[in-house]
Design a protein around this nucleic acid. Structure first.
Lengths: 142, 142
DNA sequence: CCTTTTACTTATCATTTGATAAGTAAATAA
DNA sequence: TTATTTACTTATCAAATGATAAGTAAAAGG
């Protein structure tokens, strides 16, 4: 096993993943939010409820900047902040009704592009793809 | 085959790929260039020679902004512009000596983190990983 | 009780990025 | 030959992003 060759394969692979992700997600986000705000909403959507600290960690964003973007999202009525009753310094962030709606539309648009992309893929290939994703998820991208 | 479930698996997978990519690449880039400039250099490194138009297309960047960043990279002596002798409107962009050096250091740093990450992975698992990457590259992320 | 730490906020600033208008020079088409 | 298109540049501007200093309020520790 040539670990060096595997590294080059990985570089090429991650580049492809980024490119395809971009193709699937471009134009999916509403014009009323910035890319960084969309990225935060995406994270909240799949992990809610989350605290500002968790968002800061996972989005590699400083707390002051996270706080600013959350304030903007809150002003746009896309998220709700709920103060923890046990530790009143903490907050739990959730998508609001409008936020859920916006993210549902975005995900639907991405999914429809994805379904379009795999429409001609055979059942056998789809099963192979699924197994390959599971394997890489478990053994490489954990 | 539940195509909807496959989509959710893909969302989770691409998120993991992005996260791991970030972990492997963070701090790899020199402080003397911006993230966008690094991304351009990475593209040039694996695809050189490339034209400004190709960079513009692949990096989803307008020609004016591409031109500006290439000028900055040129001023930093990281790239070289060679005018096409057949069509004098065109240019071919290559990494300069300093550019090659900078990107080699970046890739070495990323590779060493990667090797560190897979050091405890068995030979059999590495072979499975390689097959899975090949399969996804061919059938999903083409 | 007092000090320190934690979680988050506010304010400010420089830099980066993205968008657009206008321009040059070379190649191609009419 | 002239008009049009292509490849790239220059200039300018607003917005987004990142970094830092300083602050509040609650919790935890001594």
């Amino acid at each position: 096993m040539d670990k060096n060759a595997l590294f080059y394969k990985l570089v090429s692979f991650t580049t492809s993943v980024h490119r395809v992700t971009h193709e699937l997600t471009k134009d999916a986000k509403s014009d009323s939010i910035t890319p960084v705000q969309y990225s935060i909403l995406e994270y909240i959507a799949v992990s809610q409820p989350v605290t500002p600290s968790e968002i800061s960690d996972c989005q590699y964003m400083s707390m002051p900047n996270t706080s600013r973007e959350l304030r903007k999202l809150s002003e746009k009525n896309l998220i709700e902040k709920i103060i923890d009753t046990e530790d009143r310094r903490k907050q739990y962030i959730r998508l609001s009704f409008n936020g859920e709606k916006m993210m549902k539309e975005a995900f639907d648009s991405i999914e429809s592009r994805f379904q379009n992309r795999i429409q001609d893929t055979s059942k056998e290939d789809l099963e192979e793809i699924e197994r390959a994703i599971d394997l890489l998820q478990e053994k490489l991208f954990y």
